[in-house]
Amino acid sequence: MAAAAALWPWRAVLGRRGGALRALCGSVRGLAAGTQTHFGFQTVTEEERREKINQVFESVAKKYDVMNDSMTLGIHRVWKDILVHKMNPSPGTLLLDVAGGTGDIAFRFINYVRSARERQLQRKLRHHQNLSWQEISESYQEEQFKPLGDSQVVVCDINKEMLKVGKQKAQYLGYSEGLSWVLGNAEELPFDDDKFDVYTIAFGIRNVTRIDLALQEAYRVLKPGGRFLCLEFSHVSNPIISRLYDLYSFQVIPVLGEVIAGDWKSYQYLVESIRRFPPQEEFKAMIEDAGFFKVWNFVKIEEEF
C-alpha cells in the first residue's frame, strides 16, 4: 500500500477566506477565447481546451469510479475520507463541491454530518436524564425528520454526463436529503456571493481552463471565514519516486484506460494534465492571490513514504 500510494503523490490544500478582497472576481472574464493554453502536452486555444475536456469527461463518466479504483488501487477513497475529516463539518454546514459530479465528496459529507447529528442528540439526551419517554421519542423523531440539521451540499459540475452518473449513484445508495445537483462552470459559478461555508474541489482544478478565475469564484461564493479545500495530484521532488511515478503514469494508466474504459486518449490526457499543473508553492501563491489566507498543504505522500 505504501508503494502504491507513493506512485500517486497528491496534495491537499486548505485556505480560509478573508473579508476584504472583492474586486478580483470577474475582472478578467473578458479575455479572448483564442488565448493560447494547453491540453495535456498540446497547445490549444482556451475554447478548444474547454471543448476537449468536456469530451474527455463525457467519454469517461460511466467508468470514472471504476478507473479511480483501478488507477489508485482504491487509495483515492482514503484521500477523500481524509479531506472530509479535515473539513470536520457540523450540522448546519453549507458545502459547495465543485467538479464533484459522481458525488464522492458529497456522500462522505452527508455521512459525516449524520454521524455528528446523532452524537449531538446522544449528548443532549445524556444531559437531560429526567426527560419523559414522550420527550425522548419526540427528540428521536426530530432527528429522523432532520438527520442533517440544516446542512446542505450542492454538487456543481460542468459536465452533464458526470452529473447524470452522480444522480444515479445517489438514487441507488439512497442519498436525497440535503443534496442538490447543479450544472455550472467553476470559472463562473451560478451562485450568490457569501453563500457557502466550505468549498471543495477534489482532483478537478487541474481540468479548469482558467484556474485563477476558479479560485476567485471560490472566494466570491464563500462566506467571510469560509474554507477552501482542494485535493489534487502534484509534482514529485524525490528523483527515485519521480521515475517510478512517470513509469506508472505513462506506461500503465493509459493501458488501464483502454482495457477498462475503452479510452486510451482520455487517460493519456489525464496523466499529462498532472504534469502541467503548477507546482505546490506556485499553486499556493495563486490561492493567496485570490484573497485567501492561512493557506497550507496538509498532506504530501512522498514525505510520508
Rank of each mutant, 00 (worst) to 15 (best):
Leu173Met: 15
Ser70Glu: 14
Val56Ser: 09
Arg22Gln: 09
Tyr219His: 15
Phe283Asn: 03
Phe293Gly: 06
Ile241Asn: 04
Lys146Ile: 01
Arg206Ala: 03
Val198Pro: 02
Gly184Ser: 07
Leu21Ala: 14
His235Pro: 02
Thr102Ile: 09
Arg22Phe: 06
Leu21His: 12
Thr102Arg: 01
Val56Trp: 04
Asp150Gly: 05
Pro147Asp: 03
Leu256Asn: 10
Gly100Ile: 02
Leu215Cys: 07
Gln171Glu: 10
Gly166Arg: 06
Gly226Gln: 07
Phe41Gln: 10
Met71Arg: 07
Ile105Pro: 11
Arg276Leu: 05
Asp212Lys: 14
Tyr175Lys: 11
Lys52Ala: 15
Asp197Val: 09
Glu217Tyr: 09
Tyr175Ser: 08
Glu118Cys: 10
Trp181Thr: 04
Val84Arg: 05
Glu118Gly: 05
Tyr112Phe: 15
Leu148Asp: 01
His38Arg: 08
Pro224Gly: 10
Leu270Lys: 05
Arg243Ile: 00
Gly226Trp: 02
Trp296Arg: 00
Val299Asp: 01
Arg275Ser: 06
Met67Phe: 02
Glu142Gly: 10
Asp197Phe: 04
Gln141His: 10
Gly101Thr: 03
Ser59Gln: 05
Trp264Leu: 08
Glu47Gln: 14
Gly40Cys: 01
Pro254Arg: 01
Leu94Arg: 13
Ser266Phe: 03
Gly18Tyr: 08
Gly19Ser: 13
Gly26Lys: 00
Leu31Asn: 03
Cys230Lys: 03
Phe145Val: 06
Leu215Ala: 06
Tyr140Val: 04
Asp194Ala: 07
Arg17Ile: 12
Gly19Arg: 14
Gly257Asp: 07
Val28Thr: 13
Phe145Tyr: 11
Asp246Thr: 14
Val44Thr: 12
Leu231Glu: 05
Asp157Ser: 12
His85Tyr: 10
Gln251Thr: 12
Asp81Glu: 14
Val208Cys: 09
Glu302Lys: 04
Ala23Leu: 13
